[in-house]
Design a protein around this nucleic acid. Sequence first.
DNA 1: GAGTATGTTATATG
DNA 2: GCATATAACATACT
Length: 261
Amino acid sequence: MPELPEVEMVRRYAEEQCKGRTIINVRVLDEGILVGVSRSVFVRSVQGRQIIGASRHGKQLFLNLRKGFLTVHLGMTGDILMLERGERSPSHARTLFTFDDATRLAYDDPRKFGALGLASSMADFVKEHHLGPDALKVSKKEFVARAQGSHRAIKSVLLDQHVIAGVGNLYADESLFQSKIHPLAASNELPVEALERIWAQVRHVLNASIRVSTDFQMLPEGFLLRSRAAGSPCHRGNGIFQSIKVGGRTTIFCPACQKLI
DNA sequence: GAGTATGTTATATG
DNA sequence: GCATATAACATACT
């Protein structure tokens, strides 16, 4: 599911569905999903609290409680969904929250890479986890400065949540494709102009995806994500999309459009 | 069975 | 200690 645009969709859903509701019961079905907090402290801190909103920093989601924050990271396969009264919980539900009106919220996560926890403030959480600024909020100047601080491949830098928070494997490929930059280009060797282009494309790509509710098929023509597959032709003409590994992650790019500088 | 998957982090290495 | 690279986590699907 989850890179910044997908998490933003979940945030909106959570806010729509949960705002104003009070959690009266918590069932932790799989304790492994709790991070940095014991089951008893988690339950005690959440039970009886009202949800007053939902926030996001990069891929990290926060349910704003009347006091404190319930932190949610969706990992690879996490999702949240509201259950109507009596509705069966999904097969990989890891935690169930019951509200005062008997509806329930399920945290579902087959692969269990996600995490639930507590934080006293978003700033605290961001600091503690050394997260970089949100990919949609970072200024051009700060992005360039941060990218210049690493000699790794630019794609690895985009994926590093300590540099900026929110870009994952798919949107990193898309942003570099739109910027016409090779994923293996050394971050600190890219001209400032190229880094500025990447900054602009990261926001463009993330915003475009949010605009279509992360339905890739609804993206405008010319987006790699509409058909991200090695061997398929680049719509710009010459190239054939190629697959390589960068930092252990599958990377699709067009060798004709994205030349190594 | 092998290979792959939208993420993070502990561990290894230089 | 720092920057970087890699393995490991758990499950489903092709």
